[in-house]
């Protein structure tokens, strides 16, 4: 759909790219965005799209304990040992940005216990528009907003919308029902993000998560190159 381009190579390598044994660690991609925008649904769809060809795992950061992890477990998108929940003490943005120690422990434990892994998706707890991932935690980040949250969100900007490596505008199927103007959202996003890519998606459509999955594969190809 509106996938603009694939950047070349990981923008930011946070922690050491090698594991203690010298092997390359998994690519870490963060997914953030406001409550209810469809982060967990996107993670679930990505797992289904990628799990047959990639070894992957998920870390969730819930506001309340394990809710998102429980959803992924119920949906059986991955075996349970590949899903870990980090508790955030009512401050999900702190756990992905200011104090990433618990999340780093979680990704490293996953690599140790179920590895080798190609990809780890780190899902943030639903937070506000300013929540972004530390470069010490993830190599790239996806910011997920939805059309029902208001079509002025791209115009308002904020670090998530402006700087995420990929902006996903979710639930496009709802646009006519909530009076959101997709063209305007696209134009505003372009204005805020310049060359950074934007994907408009509806997980209910046949196309589903395909564009985001393609973007992830491209990042992974660059990571392992």
């Amino acid at each position: 759909m509106h996938l603009d381009h694939f950047p070349h190579g990981p923008a930011a390598v946070g922690a050491d790219a090698r594991r203690p044994d010298g092997s390359r660690r998994a690519l870490r991609i963060g997914l953030g965005g406001p409550v209810g925008s469809g982060k967990t649904a996107t993670v679930a769809a990505l797992c289904r799209a990628l799990r047959d060809r990639l070894s992957l795992a998920v870390v969730t950061n819930d506001i309340y304990t394990r809710e998102d992890a429980e959803f992924l477990l119920r949906e059986a998108v991955l075996p349970p040992e590949r899903i870990t929940a980090v508790e955030t003490g009512a401050c999900p943005h702190t756990a992905i940005r200011d104090d990433i120690s618990a999340n780093l422990e979680a990704v490293e434990d996953l690599e140790d216990e179920v590895g080798p892994l190609d990809l780890i998706l780190v899902e943030s707890g639903g937070d506000n528009l300013t929540a972004t991932f530390s470069k010490g935690l993830v190599d790239a980040q996806i910011f997920v907003i939805d059309v029902a949250g208001g079509d002025d969100i791209p115009r308002k900007g904020g670090p998530g919308v402006t700087t995420a490596d990929l902006l996903v505008v979710n639930k496009t199927d709802l646009a006519p029902h909530v009076g959101s103007d997709l063209a305007r959202m696209a134009a505003d996003a372009k204005a805020q993000r310049a060359e950074l890519p934007v994907v408009f998606q509806s997980l209910r459509s046949e196309h589903g998560v395909a564009d985001v999955a393609a973007w992830v594969r491209a990042r992974l190809a660059a990571w392992t190159a």
Binding site: C91, T94, A95, I100, S101, A102
Partner: peptide
């Protein structure tokens, strides 16, 4: 309190 050692998630 902002020393990044995980304390924020504990009460």
């Amino acid at each position: 309190g902002r020393f990044p050692a995980g304390g924020h998630a504990h009460s």
